[in-house]
């Protein structure tokens, strides 16, 4: 077996083990005291009734699934945006894409969507449209001669993000607050359990996004040499960029639709993994899928327990970790890159 495949297998086993450990922890802790033995017996199919079963099967387990899925999707979206913009500081939130998706979701909420599969699809469609608009605007504004210089890209992303945040505020101010009851909580990132139909839509869309990105991991490596070199090595750069753009926007928008705009996962996870695995996207993308899950699940478990019985929004935790991390990366690793 070639070394790369072996390293990937190793990384995935390590991250898979970490995910199991964190997931076990997330099952164990919470405001309702449930003994490990009771959890085990519920998981093994015993005691289908009673408070323990409700807590484990209807609250903690779905939450673990949503957190893992959302974290993985965001981390892969981060790798994808970084490869696409050839910029290690790109992230769905920093690029304003998440705000665009959030605006789409708020608009969709105005129509008072229920919890059916059709509603979940509609919500995703609005989020996806918002994400595409925001990413497109950022790209058009920031691109100079087909390149996306660091400062311009970050500034444009922040400004586009601010614009969509303001637009969200406008909508919220104009509309009867009761119709948007959950919006404030959702806007900070919220991994509360979602309906089975929504979860299925979330899973399918995430899988599609990961497939779009992972299937072109090798070509994304070549894109790091610059677009012209990638073309000269046999890559259809325009098609590649479109596919990655759609894939990363899809990943971002379905997370925003079902868990809210959670920031910085797409920055912290890929950057940390690059330290272990190097820049090869063929290792990075699958590892980010698991690593993102581990990180967000950990952050969410902290959000549930730090101020128990109250609960922090998970976006608060990721932002508290992510903002200093961003500054650290900007000041050390990428100092002086134009």
């Amino acid at each position: 077996m070639p070394t790369d495949a072996r390293r990937l297998a190793l990384a995935l086993s390590a991250l898979g083990a970490a995910l199991l450990v964190v997931a076990a922890g997330a099952l164990l802790v919470g405001s309702a005291a449930v003994s490990p033995r009771a959890i085990l017996s519920v998981l093994l199919g015993g005691k289908p009734e009673g408070i323990e079963a409700v807590v484990v099967l209807n609250l903690r387990l779905p939450r673990i699934v949503v957190a893992t899925l959302a974290g993985g999707a965001l981390a892969v979206a981060g790798v994808a945006f970084q490869a696409l913009t050839r910029n290690p500081l790109a992230d769905p939130a920093i690029l304003g894409v998440a705000s665009g998706a959030a605006f789409g979701v708020v608009l969709a909420q105005l129509f008072g969507l229920g919890s059916t599969v059709a509603a979940a699809l509609g919500l995703s469609a609005f989020a996806f449209a918002g994400a595409m608009v925001a990413a497109g605007v950022v790209y058009v504004i920031a691109a100079t001669d087909g390149r996306l210089p660091l400062q311009t890209l970050l500034l444009t992303g922040v400004i586009v993000g601010l614009f969509f945040s303001s637009a969200i505020t406008v909508v919220i101010s104009l509309v009867d607050f009761n119709r948007l009851g959950g919006v404030i909580h959702w806007l900070l990132g919220n991994l509360a359990p979602i309906s089975g139909g929504s979860l299925a839509v979330f899973a399918v869309l995430s899988a599609a996004g990961v497939w779009l990105v992972l299937g072109r991991a090798r070509q994304l490596n070549l894109l790091a040499l610059g677009e012209e070199s990638a073309i000269q090595l046999g890559v259809d750069a325009e098609r590649l960029k479109r596919r990655i753009f759609v894939g990363a926007s899809l990943l971002t928008s379905c997370v925003v639709a079902f868990a809210g705009p959670i920031g910085f996962i797409g920055l912290i996870v890929p950057h940390t993994l690059r330290g272990f695995l190097g820049p090869d996207n063929r290792l990075l993308i699958p590892a980010a899928l698991l690593g993102g899950g581990v990180f967000l699940l950990l952050a969410d478990t902290l959000a549930r327990t730090l101020v128990a019985p109250a609960e922090l929004s998970v976006g608060v935790i990721t932002a508290f970790c992510g903002a200093p991390f961003f500054v650290y990366v900007l000041r050390t690793r990428y100092r002086g890159i134009p």
Partner: peptide, 12 residues
């Protein structure tokens, strides 16, 4: 094609 020297965006 061997282009003019420019290091890639990531540390390959």
């Amino acid at each position: 094609v061997v282009p003019q020297d420019a290091p890639p965006a990531f540390p390959f």
